[in-house]
Design a protein around this nucleic acid. Structure first.
Length: 299
DNA sequence: GGTATTTGACCTAG
DNA sequence: CTAGGTCAAATACC
């Protein structure tokens, strides 16, 4: 566990400051106040989009800087190179560092956040790689990885599980970070796979994706510093931190009554956390520490 | 035929 | 031993 060194922290601070500036402008615009244009962005839809992009960009870069500072040896963790069994048999000896996928999930890699959505869409293209009946849960858990895992070595994954309490709501836990569409000015994926069907992954549909994590379908978003288990499990265990996180997270009382004016773009978008790979030395706990500082800055 | 999804098997932490 | 995460062969779809 290495704390961020001073240089990246400094860079991150600047980026966060810039992000905050953009957020302030955006807030002013959303509230109908006059605000100085930042980067030429105005109250037009394009301008608002530009501002949100700036905020996201700043946050992403800041977080990346913080992550990099503690995970220099983590560079090849996302190359997508897989060491796996050859024929119906794993070869753990050939991949000691990667041998424990489960360990990464349970003890190392942690969910970056949990979202409650009415659809499984989030603007990224996911490929389903597994489905599992979860003990004590009425609905199976679906496992997705980024479609660009092989192309770009994008290690982003997510788990989707229908909420028992609210079957129309999906609880989505994200792991890892999208590196596939983060290449600076490169826009996110241009298409969306619509998994909205009731039976697991349905037929894809194509459309214009919302900005990731700024989707109107997001009912709640929470950062999950200690999340290892499913959101459903965490929701059930009332004493657990995560359930508190969810309960106390950005709560949107009623989706239908929610207007964009009530939605703090920073709340939603800044939750698009870059998470260092689970094997990195940069724990999410520390990461959250930065997060709190960041939130302090915003207040 | 190529690609995505399904699903049973395999693996491992607890 | 159990439950959960992932893989990959089989299957479905376009």
């Amino acid at each position: 566990m290495a704390m961020a060194s001073s240089a990246p922290s400094c860079a991150a601070s600047e980026l966060v400051a810039r992000g905050r500036e953009s957020a302030a402008v955006l807030q002013a615009l959303l509230l109908g106040q006059q605000a100085p244009a930042v980067g030429g962005a105005g109250a037009t839809p394009h301008g608002l989009r530009e501002l949100t992009d700036q905020i996201l960009h700043c946050c992403d870069r800041a977080l990346a800087a913080l992550c990099r500072s503690g995970t220099e040896d983590d560079a090849d963790s996302g190359t997508g190179t897989r060491k796996r069994k050859t024929e119906r048999g794993y070869s753990p000896a050939a991949s000691p560092a990667k041998s424990s996928k489960r360990m990464r999930v349970r003890g190392g890699e942690r969910g970056t956040r949990v979202e409650k959505r009415q659809t499984m869409e989030d603007g990224f293209i996911w490929r389903k790689y597994g489905q599992k009946e979860i003990h004590g849960s009425k609905y199976p858990r679906l496992y997705f990885r980024c479609t660009y895992k092989d192309d770009h070595g994008c290690m982003a994954r997510r788990q989707v599980q229908r909420s028992e309490a609210e079957p129309s709501v999906f609880l989505i836990t994200y792991f890892g970070d999208h590196t596939c569409c983060r290449d600076d000015d490169e826009p996110p994926a241009q298409f969306v796979i619509n998994f909205g069907s009731s039976t697991s992954a349905g037929q894809p549909s194509i459309g214009s994706p919302p900005r990731p994590s700024c989707d109107d379908d997001v009912l709640e978003v929470c950062k999950t510093p200690d999340l290892c288990n499913s959101p459903e499990d965490e929701l059930r265990s009332g004493a657990d931190n995560v359930s508190e996180f969810i309960d106390q997270s950005i709560s949107v009382p009623d989706l239908t009554s929610m207007s964009s004016m009530e939605w703090d773009p920073l709340d939603g978008c800044s939750d698009y956390w870059m998470l260092c790979d689970g094997e990195s030395s940069f724990g999410i706990g520390e990461f959250i520490g930065h997060d709190f500082d960041y939130l302090d800055l915003l207040q």
